[in-house]
Amino acid sequence: MKGVRLGLLDLVVDCGNKKKFVRIEQYFQIQDYALWDIIENENSFVPVTQTTTAEGGVITTTISSPVTAKEKIKKKNDVKARSMLLMTLPNEHLMTFNQYKCPKSLFAAIETRFGGNEAIKKTQKTHLKKMYENFSAPSIESIDSIFNRIQKIVSQLAVLGEFISQEDINLKFLRSLPSEWNTHVVVWRNKPDLDIMSIDDIYNNFKIIEKEVKVTASSNSSSQNMAFMSSPSTNSTNEVYTAYGVSTAS
């Protein structure tokens, strides 16, 4: 091992009186293939999320737990695989990578950050920065899709060591929302703690009032259509247009 520089995708393992380094994927394949199957094929427990709305508009979200023996084993392996991947990282990187709850996405993020050469990483970073700068959303895109897209770009940039201020992320999200959200966007853009507020907090608050916003937007649209349909004709009924475009009283 002397003189050998280990990468963050390598692990040091005991082999009797000797030590050797192996790639993470090799280690999982040799020691516990079930864990590698989860990382490679995402063969893991998938919880079901259910959202219910009670009287008074209170929204409750519940996430199912593993029930069968097979589901419990998958859940256990999920936790183990993710924990082992996090253990390969230096402490200063744990905060960045801890956001990845799925072992497969966590491993992909580690490979993106620490695998490949610097030229590839620089190209990826430049591309993602351009995507963030030009980020926009069509008027028909849902708030969920907008939130997920911007979160993905920000997360990938963080993995590559490019961090964006929380205030900038929040403003980018607010500015990209459809016009039906304008009233609420103005309120949130002027909040004094926008620079420390999590984008998740903004998203969750907007999700609570999403139904109300859509109902209001639909009502306004219907009112405008009715007003247009009932507006008086610009042509007077007592005018007759001649072939020369000159009107004469009947």
Score class of each variant (00 low, 15 high):
35 L>T: 07
31 Q>M: 14
62 T>R: 04
181 W>D: 04
187 V>S: 00
226 M>L: 12
199 I>T: 07
169 I>A: 01
230 S>V: 11
132 Y>V: 06
232 P>N: 01
59 I>P: 00
100 Y>K: 06
130 K>A: 09
169 I>H: 00
140 I>F: 15
92 E>T: 15
72 K>F: 06
246 V>T: 13
194 L>Y: 13
50 Q>W: 07
48 V>Y: 06
91 N>S: 12
74 K>A: 13
43 N>L: 08
62 T>P: 01
102 C>S: 08
195 D>G: 13
242 T>A: 08
72 K>G: 01
104 K>T: 11
236 S>D: 14
63 I>P: 04
150 I>D: 00
215 V>A: 03
100 Y>A: 03
44 S>K: 02
131 M>Q: 08
200 D>L: 12
8 L>R: 12
60 T>I: 10
141 E>Q: 09
196 I>T: 13
153 I>V: 01
233 S>H: 12
186 V>F: 02
5 R>H: 14
52 T>K: 03
92 E>Q: 15
4 V>C: 07
151 Q>H: 03
86 L>A: 07
77 N>G: 05
79 V>A: 05
177 L>N: 09
75 K>V: 12
115 G>F: 00
197 M>D: 14
26 Q>W: 15
19 K>P: 08
134 N>C: 10
76 K>E: 02
182 N>M: 04
199 I>H: 04
64 S>W: 09
59 I>S: 02
101 K>R: 12
206 F>I: 10
243 A>E: 12
3 G>L: 06
186 V>M: 00
239 E>Y: 06
202 I>A: 03
20 K>D: 05
13 V>G: 03
203 Y>R: 05
186 V>W: 00
98 N>L: 10
61 T>D: 01
45 F>E: 11
56 G>N: 05
130 K>W: 08
229 M>S: 14
86 L>N: 07
168 D>Y: 11
94 L>M: 08
208 I>E: 02
126 T>E: 07
122 K>W: 07
235 N>P: 09
77 N>T: 11
76 K>R: 09
89 L>W: 05
35 L>H: 04
191 K>W: 11
221 S>F: 12
18 K>R: 15
220 N>Y: 06
232 P>S: 04
124 Q>D: 03
246 V>P: 13
23 R>I: 15
87 M>S: 15
14 D>C: 13
196 I>F: 10
156 Q>F: 03
226 M>V: 14
75 K>T: 14
78 D>A: 05
101 K>S: 10
219 S>H: 10
221 S>D: 10
2 K>N: 10
187 V>F: 03
167 E>H: 02
234 T>I: 15
47 P>E: 06
130 K>T: 09
